[in-house]
Amino acid sequence: MKKSLFILALAVLVGTVSSTPASAGFFDFLFGKDNGEVNLYTNRHYDTDAELLKQFEEKTGIKVNVLKGGSDELIERINREGESTNADLLITADAGRLHRAKAAGLLQTIDSETVLNNIPANLRDEDNQWTALTVRGRVVVYARNRVNPLEINTYEDLTAAKWNDKILVRSSSNIYNQSLLASLIATEGEEYARAWAEGVLNNMARTPKGNDRAQATAVAAGTGDLAIMNTYYIGKMLNSSNPEEVKVGKQVGVRFLDETHINVSGIGLTKHAKNKDNAIKLIEFLTDAQAQEFFAEANYEYPANPSVEASALLKSWGEFETQDINLTKLGEFNQKAVEIFNEIGWQ
């Protein structure tokens, strides 16, 4: 019985290895097959992304292999895989992470005029090692029935005494909070940023917990009046399959602040990409106007390509002015931001 089990196991094993796309390398090596593929490590996992990649495959005949995972884990993996990495491209949902990959020497310049034309300079790496695909703002969401949005205009206003016990925000281990604080370090300096974080900490309605949606829900429930969160979560709540969540989405309003902190989902070309040409083709495809509309809308985000208009819902929230920094700074000051959070005790 054991022998037959073993043979079965072996047969299954061989079958799997040969049918796993990742083992393509192995069989290419054996049979010298030509590679018409590109390997993508990504932190985005929306069903619509898969749809878009399929369109790319149909258009170009280049097969896209996808490995999904947490941004940090994927970066660590590329780092450990070194020169022999399978990854050609890396997508993360935060500019700070892309900068970290760049700083670790994992990326290389994307040599493409098309990309330079598609994406404005402030949404790209200084050396064009990565580029934004979509943009989101980190804004204040307020209770429509209790708060006059005109009372809150800047991030600094969040530290005012009148919001004592009123502010909801998630934990500092979240990268969006880290990037927000990093942006304040970049624009106003470390001491200002520390004082700001302490001020927000003092005004919190509860210890940080839950995700961004939970903050909006807590505003609707009356636990607090203001929540710091990313714009797209309101879009998701308004389109939720839970009617109660839709109600919450309608009870809160989006308030853009002066110099709104923005962050991006972006894509970088790995230093040791084996399919560099195909990879650049995919970046060009994803930053192109046609794909941009689809890609941004999937997650209720703003397109990074300025020739594409935001969706009607996003436009209804109004125009806003963004922080005047290159997003590279978010990565440069990430470590400092994490240290400040830990030191002041923002959980």
């Binding site: 090596f29 022999s84 399978n86």
Partner: peptide, 18 residues
């Protein structure tokens, strides 16, 4: 990764497989 370097340098054969 170590095993792969022993087997065939420059390509990942075993790493990232099932």
């Amino acid at each position: 990764l170590g095993l792969d370097r022993l087997i065939y340098s420059g390509r990942l054969v075993l790493t990232s497989t099932i």
